[in-house]
Design a binder for these strands. Structure first.
Length: 721
DNA sequence: ATCTCCAAAT
């Protein structure tokens, strides 16, 4: 609206009023035509992603209008080159309304609402587009109230302003407000109807959506497509198909809605039939079809389609890589990953989580480093994946570095990454930092609470765990089954038998939690540790589940502690039946026999292990020194510092003996010669790791030693602080 | 005729 005025002003400036306006000379006419042609070319190049060619044209122009600059700015924004766009905007000599509006929109799309607001406040004149851009900016970032305030202040509201505020409500889930607004006015256009209808579809309120659809004064393609995909995505394929047949015009969206609807409902053959009938396919249609085949594990067909696809985009590659990775074909995934023409953070995330999922933590970490070197920024999902990798290999130092990176890029807040950080600190043995993180999560969800409770329990801080549990209840979060597993194991590890028993019996009544087998296992562990083996056994007999390996394992652990070999044998026998590959159980039972001097049974156990092909997982201990992990096994002689480590341990033993310490070979659980037993005691993997830690970690700093042997779900860990 | 704001499908 103000645009023509501004242009007149410019003319007034360049041509004095008292002289008649001269007719444009032929050269001037051709100049302005030239400029127009150049502007058109810039736009065309930008639309096809050829920023360099656009820039060359722009640089070669001897005269430019604001449209030339605007075309460059919006072109850069279209190609996600925000910084270049901003540079152009800052450099341009005379900004017009469109320049400001384009830049504001760019800031909003780049996630920088503050910059958008600054521009909005600075601009000399605003039109409806400026206001609408700000309104939509607030709406897109979840600031509904601010969006409403902008809307109320718009002096010359147009239909887009009205649709903007309607969309603000719909996008942020406030369908009732949207509905109220809609009813308060009658001058809505087809976009408004579509918008509200889309809101109902999102809320899965298909009946309300359909009601609007039927009442609409005018329908366009979007109306049909919204309604069709609403049905298709909510398992109402028959209704979707009916509407599809009725639809007067079908475009790519219409067809694709049907394809992805069938795919999402696992009807891949129907999807394929529609896909083959489509008169025109775009990359979304192809990708949906490929994802469908990957979903139902028809990997080969997916790959065939992918190879035949003419217009592969990053999503196509990402879909295939994710599919391969999730079906365990990590090498095929990697092959595609290496071949793809360009990658985004989804591609990196797909391959990294693929390796992490298979337990190849080293490769996951290596790729993460490579990603950062390539200049790609990690998103929340990648950070979360890598944090759990750190937890898996218990690399606290690496975890701390990630934490620092998260703070730097501003992704540290919020429960999503917060929970991953929390879990990392818990598993890496830094429960204090875990607590700091926990306190900092402003939008704690049930997982946050459960993680910190289980973390405290795991580290033996039962009372702390229960204190957190109480404050969880006070803050109005309802405990779930997982919470109670943490709470019961907290009681178990701290010997709080009565309290644990109380929770166990009241949790159904108090929190509506159905007792599951994990809870029973916790209780058996709790009673067993307290020496109440009979009660534990009774509980197991009366529980409404068949005891699983974990339950018997808990009983075995308890019997072992209290030297009840008979019960332990029975428990171990059950575990063998259920999990013939559970090497840990063979070792436990073998150790139990050894402890009671039943060497014949130990030998039989060994034979059984050999015959069933079970391999004992060797016990490892490791310690982290300056981001490097040093691993030790029993009597390890492979470490470069072996001589120093053994020398130090010898010296330590000499001093211990001088003080009257006698090591206790009886605790060694193998049938070996006395001398060798003593050797094993001295050079047990933890001791080697501790010695190395003492020799290499500065005094006053904690030495954290980790072990790989697991009993049930609990990672045994020694913290030497 | 070239530039900006609202609605639909991985």
């Amino acid at each position: 609206m103000l645009q023509p005025v501004t242009r007149c002003m410019r003319l007034l400036h360049t041509r004095p009023l008292n002289k008649p306006i001269p007719k444009p000379s032929p050269s001037l006419v051709s100049d302005s035509k030239m400029i127009q042609q150049c502007n058109t070319s810039i736009t065309k190049y930008m639309r096809t992603g050829q920023c360099h060619s656009a820039l060359r044209i722009f640089n070669n122009m001897t005269q430019r209008t604001s449209v030339s600059w605007n075309a460059m700015i919006s072109g850069y924004l279209l190609n996600n080159k925000f910084d270049l766009a901003r540079q152009m905007f800052d450099k341009m000599p005379q900004r017009d309304l469109v320049s400001w509006n384009v830049m504001i929109t760019g800031c909003v799309r780049n996630g920088n609402l503050g910059a958008a607001r600054n521009l909005f406040d600075q601009m000399p004149h605003r039109d409806a587009v400026s206001w609408n851009a700000m309104l939509s900016g607030y709406a897109q970032h979840g600031y509904v109230e601010e969006a409403r305030m902008v809307f109320d202040r718009i002096p010359n509201k147009n239909s887009i302003s009205w649709n903007g505020i309607l969309a603000a409500y719909v996008q942020n889930g406030r369908i009732e407000d949207a509905q109220k607004l809609f009813e308060s006015n009658s001058a809505w256009d087809v976009v408004s109807w579509n918008c509200l209808m889309g809101g109902y579809v999102r809320k899965k309120r298909l009946i309300d959506a359909r009601c609007l659809f039927d009442r609409m004064p005018k329908r366009d393609e979007v109306s049909w497509n919204t309604m069709i995909s609403g049905y298709a995505q909510n398992r109402e394929l028959a209704e979707a198909h009916k509407l599809f047949d009725e639809s007067p015009i079908k475009d790519v969206y219409t067809w694709t809605a049907m394809v992805s609807g069938y795919v999402q409902n696992g009807m891949v053959d129907e999807a394929r039939r529609v896909f083959d009938e489509m008169p025109l396919k775009n990359s979304v249609s192809w990708n949906a079809m490929i994802a469908g085949y990957l979903q139902c594990k028809k990997i080969e067909v997916a790959k065939e389609l992918f190879d035949a696809m003419p217009c592969k985009n990053v999503s196509s590659w990402n879909t295939m890589i994710t599919g391969f990775a999730q079906s365990g074909s990590i090498d095929l995934a990697r092959d595609l990953f290496e071949k793809m023409p360009w990658r985004d953070c989804i591609s990196w995330g797909a391959i990294i989580s693929g390796y992490a999922h298979l337990g190849n933590n080293e490769e996951a970490l290596r790729l993460f480093v490579e990603m950062k070197r390539s200049g790609e920024k990690a998103n929340r999902s990648i950070f979360s994946c890598i944090l759990s990798t750190c937890a898996e290999i218990t690399s606290l130092e690496l975890g701390c570095q990630l934490h620092a990176q998260l703070v730097k890029v501003g992704l540290g807040s919020g429960w999503y990454v917060g929970n991953a950080l929390l879990s990392m600190y818990c598993k890496c043995g830094n429960i204090d930092e875990a607590n700091v993180i926990f306190e900092e999560i402003s939008d704690k969800d049930i997982v946050s609470w459960n993680t910190i409770i289980a973390g405290y329990a795991r580290h033996g801080f039962g009372k702390e765990a229960l204190r957190v549990f109480e404050s969880m209840k006070r803050s109005g979060v309802k405990p779930d089954e997982v919470t109670m597993v943490g709470v019961l194991s907290a009681c178990s590890h701290s010997g709080l038998v009565d309290r644990g028993t109380h929770y166990f019996h009241t949790m159904n009544h108090d929190y509506g939690i159905t007792t599951n087998s994990k809870h029973y296992t916790c209780m058996i562990d709790l009673l067993g540790r307290a020496g109440r083996l009979d009660d534990a056994l009774n509980l197991m007999k009366n529980m409404p589940f068949e005891p699983d390996a974990a339950t018997w394992g808990a009983l075995l652990g308890a019997s072992r502690i209290y030297g009840n070999t008979e019960l332990a044998e029975k428990a171990a026998e059950m575990v063998f039946q259920m999990e013939p590959d559970n090497a840990g159980m063979y070792v436990l039972l073998s150790n139990l026999y050894a402890a009671s001097g039943r060497w014949g049974d130990v030998g039989a156990m060994r034979l059984k292990m050999r015959d069933t092909g079970v391999k004992k997982v060797p016990g490892y201990s490791w310690v982290e020194v300056q981001s490097k992990i040093h691993v030790f096994s029993v009597g390890d002689g492979t470490h470069p510092d072996t001589v120093r480590i053994y020398g130090y341990l010898e010296e330590l033993y000499f001093r211990l003996k001088e003080d009257g310490y006698i090591s206790s070979p009886k605790l060694v659980l193998h049938d070996v010669e006395e001398e060798e037993k003593e050797h094993m005691l001295r050079y047990h993997s933890e001791k080697l790791a501790v010695a190395f830690g003492i020799l290499n970690i500065q005094g006053g700093r904690p030495i954290r030693v980790f072990k790989n042997l697991r009993v049930g779900e609990v990672l045994l860990r020694c913290d030497f602080v």
